[in-house]
C-alpha cells in the first residue's frame, strides 16, 4: 500500500477496500484458470480413450484365428479347426462332444487339464470324442495372453497346439501373470514351435481380442465360471480323469 501524507480514516478504508477487491479479483481469475486447465485435461483424456477405442475396434474383425487341418492326437490323425469361439479337435462323427469353457489363468482349469489331458487325448484318438475348447479370460491377464498365443499356434502351427495347450496351463503362476507377447513367444519356441508366423503373431498378442469376444460368448452361453463342461450340449459337473472318462463313455454309448 503506497504511503500517503496524513491519511484520513476514509481514504485508508478506501485503500483497504481496493486491496480486498483486487485480491478477490485475482482469486476469481485463478479459479477460472484452474477450471479451464482441468476441463482441458479432461477433454484430452476423453479424446485419448475415444481414439484408443476406435483404433482398437477397427481391424479387429480380421483378428480371428483360423484353422482347418488335421493333427495327431492320441496317436491318430484327427480334424482340427477353429469354429466360432472354440478350438475343435476330434472326428466330426464322434458320438460325444465335450464343450469346455476354460481360462488359462484359472487354477481349477489347471487342475482339470492336468487330470484329464490323457483321458481326452485317448478318447479323441479313438474317435469317440470331439472336444471344443472355448478359451476365455475370467481371472488374470494371463488368460487372454496365453489364449492369444494358443490361437496363434492353432493358426500357424496347429501340430503343436495340443502340447502347447497343456503346457500353458502348467506354466501359469503368479510370476507368469506378468508375461507379455515376447515371453510367450520364447515359451512356444522352447516347446518346439518353429513357425516364424506363429512366433510373430504371439509377440503381437494378435488374438487377445478374440479371447475377449469369447468371454462375451460365454455370458451368452450362460457360463459364469471356469471350467464349465457341456457334454453333448448338457452342462455336467466339473469332473476330471477317470470320472470324466466314464461320463464320456456313457454319452458316446447312447
Amino acid at each position: 500500500m503506497p504511503k500517503r501524507p496524513n491519511p484520513t480514516t476514509n481514504s485508508r478504508q478506501q485503500a483497504r477496500d481496493r486491496a480486498r477487491l483486487e485480491a478477490e479479483r485475482l482469486q476469481r481469475k485463478r479459479k477460472t484458470t484452474q477450471i479451464i486447465v482441468v476441463v482441458v485435461v479432461a477433454l484430452v483424456a476423453i479424446s485419448i480413450v475415444a481414439s484408443a477405442i476406435l483404433l482398437g475396434t477397427s481391424g479387429r474383425k480380421d483378428r480371428v484365428p483360423t484353422a482347418s487341418t488335421s493333427v495327431t492326437v492320441g496317436g491318430t490323425s484327427v480334424p482340427f479347426d477353429v469354429d466360432g469361439s472354440a478350438f475343435q479337435v476330434g472326428k466330426s462323427d464322434a458320438k460325444a462332444t465335450l464343450d469346455l469353457w476354460v481360462d488359462y489363468s484359472c487354477s481349477h482349469c489347471q487342475e482339470f487339464e492336468a487330470a484329464s489331458n490323457d483321458v481326452l487325448a485317448q478318447k479323441v484318438g479313438s474317435g469317440e470324442l470331439k472336444v471344443r475348447y472355448h478359451n476365455l479370460q475370467f481371472v488374470t491377464a494371463y488368460g487372454a495372453q496365453a489364449g492369444s498365443a494358443a490361437a496363434c499356434v492353432a493358426t500357424y502351427a496347429p501340430q503343436q497346439w495340443w502340447a502347447l495347450n497343456a503346457a500353458l496351463y502348467a506354466n501359469h503362476s503368479a510370476e507368469s501373470d506378468g508375461w507379455k507377447g515376447a515371453q510367450f513367444a520364447d515359451f512356444a519356441q522352447q516347446l518346439g514351435v518353429e513357425s516364424q508366423d506363429a512366433l510373430t503373431c504371439i509377440g503381437d498378442q494378435r488374438y487377445t481380442s478374440w479371447i475377449s469376444d469369447n468371454t462375451s460368448a460365454a455370458a451368452d452361453a450362460g457360463v459364469t465360471g471356469t471350467p464349465t463342461l457341456f457334454l453333448n450340449g448338457q452342462q455336467i459337473d466339473t469332473v476330471g480323469g477317470a470320472q470324466l472318462a466314464a461320463k464320456i463313455d456313457e454319452a458316446a454309448s447312447q
Binding site: 484452474q34 482441468v38 485435461v41 481380442s209 469376444d213
Partner: peptide
C-alpha cells in the same frame, strides 16, 4: 486441480485398460 488431474489420469488408465470389459458389463456390447 492437482487432485482432479491425478484422478483423471487414473480413470483414463483404467478406461484404456478395461473399456472392453466395462462395455460388456454395462452395455452388453463386445
Amino acid at each position: 486441480p492437482i487432485i482432479a488431474i491425478w484422478y483423471l489420469a487414473i480413470v483414463t488408465a483404467i478406461a484404456l485398460r478395461f473399456y472392453r470389459e466395462f462395455a460388456l458389463l454395462w452395455f452388453g456390447v463386445a
